[in-house]
């Protein structure tokens, strides 16, 4: 049974909106996830990440006082973060390309635009399980490889600090 497959995951939902948390929780439960925690905003989420063994974070972006990007940066770079590689799915009403790039650059694994659907969330869930991306640390960035495919590349490699072709360390 597929439900049984997902029941061992512990998922943290972070959203300041009760209705949205309820919707995501319901979808995850229907998919078989049993251990679900909720955070009302980033600081609250950090306490949950410290207190429980979280395997996956599904977070909103716009929250007060600290937003979803602050949470992503904490997970990826803080020495207090229990897992800098923790998979993160960002759910947001932002659909503008510049915003998507900003979220990607902060270190998210998957981006999901609202409205939330069971199909979209399920797909992201399968993706983070089956197709995890490598992590890279070029210069100041640390997070999942922002390139989804490894393909021959003719232009300047911006992974290198000097813009020249970089070599893997």
């Amino acid at each position: 049974m597929q439900e049984a497959r997902l029941q061992r995951l512990s998922v943290l939902i972070v959203d300041d909106n009760h209705n949205m948390r309820e919707l995501v929780r319901t979808i995850l439960q229907a998919l078989g996830v049993v251990n679900i925690y909720e955070g009302r905003e980033s600081e609250h989420a950090i306490t949950k990440i410290r207190d429980f063994s979280i395997d996956l974070v599904v977070t909103d972006w716009v929250m007060e006082p600290k937003d979803g990007l602050d949470l992503v940066k904490w997970i990826r770079t803080s020495p207090d973060s229990p897992d800098n590689f923790l998979p993160i799915i960002m759910v947001t009403g932002h659909t503008e390309k510049a915003r998507i790039t900003e979220a990607r650059d902060a270190g998210i694994n998957e981006f999901m635009a609202k409205p939330i659907s069971a199909r979209a969330l399920y797909r992201r869930l399968v993706s983070v399980i089956e197709h995890p991306r490598q992590f890279v640390r070029p210069g100041s960035y640390f997070g999942p490889d922002r390139r989804r495919k490894v393909e021959p590349f003719a232009g300047a490699d911006r992974r290198g600090d000097d813009g020249n072709k970089a070599s893997a360390a």
Binding site: L9, V128, P132, V136, R137, G160, D162
Partner: peptide
């Protein structure tokens, strides 16, 4: 300068779930 580090983290989710996870239409 000009180098980058590539890390392949352990796939904890895959270890927990086991087997191949794919979209199940009934679910």
């Amino acid at each position: 300068k000009g180098t980058y580090e590539v890390i392949t983290p352990p796939n904890k989710l895959k270890d927990l779930v086991g087997g191949v996870t794919q979209i199940n239409d009934d679910l």
